[in-house]
Design a binder for these strands. Structure first.
Lengths: 139, 139
DNA sequence: TCACTCTTAACGGAGAGTTTCACGCCCCGG
DNA sequence: CCGGGGCGTGAAACTCTCCGTTAAGAGTGA
């Protein structure tokens, strides 16, 4: 099972926005794309999905761009992943009537555990970690 | 992110084998396939992968078939998933030099957590749960 | 030898994921 | 009020993995 590029792009974009959140600066799509090596036109679609889930916010017109819709401490990796991929561990065959119930429960348990795990990682911490690591080079 | 049918098939097949493990009975591919609604010819490929990872064992010739290679208590859902899918949460872009290290670590943390979670579910328990649930209908 | 089973490799359709393109819309400054 | 610079949206093209099928090979017991 591979983490799709799309959710990786989404996570990187949100991280970039989290870094600039304290400055209150809006970031253009081009900026986000160049900074993370993401195709700009693809990133637009991702940002729209993130916006519909109230993770980012957009400002139109000249001087427009994107910023976080909420505090970095309120945005988790799990929210971003579920926004892009829906339920993270979904066995669609599990709805069949003759499907072994014990397995269905096992999948559900994994799903819930994964949700809890990814929701424990929020972007405030990620942005801080990145800043700390980067500042070490200046000591 | 969807659980692929392939790993679902694998889990169901191993579960069937776990149920019959105490009886020491071998199961033919056709049997496993019919019992779980899996295309037989596809299941063969899955069983071969499971065999190469020492999860199941095969007996050739007439009266041949498949059985577990180890005790049901020693086989976990995580082993089956990793056998089919490799590392469960792999961000291949994470090896790029300019990739944010804090994100790379976050993915790693998720991966390790998921491995621990899926390895905590072994097939002995699953088979018991299924048997208990089925016996309730006979009370 | 024959019947039965697993073993292995190769093929192709279907569908999702990725990327690009074109055009419409909205807001601000002049 | 109008035009440029940004976002918004949908659709087409392309790639690639997944899923399933087919067919020929090889081991085992009767």
């Amino acid at each position: 099972m591979k983490l799709s590029v799309k959710s990786d792009y989404a996570a990187r974009a949100v991280l970039s926005l989290a870094r600039n959140h304290s400055k209150g600066r809006v970031m253009k799509v081009e900026e986000l794309a160049a900074e993370n090596g993401i195709p700009a036109n693809y990133l637009v679609q991702i940002l729209i999905e993130l916006k519909s889930r109230n993770i980012v916010r957009s400002v139109r017109g000249k001087e427009g761009g994107y910023l976080l819709a909420r505090l970095p401490s309120e945005i988790t990796l799990g929210q971003v992943l579920r926004c892009i991929h829906g339920p993270i561990f979904e066995a669609d065959a599990a709805s069949e009537p003759l499907y072994p119930p014990e397995l269905r429960e096992a999948w559900k348990k994994v799903q819930e555990g994964l949700d809890a795990l990814t929701d424990s990682i929020h972007f405030e911490k990620l942005a801080e970690d990145g800043a700390a690591k980067r500042s070490m080079y200046y000591i």
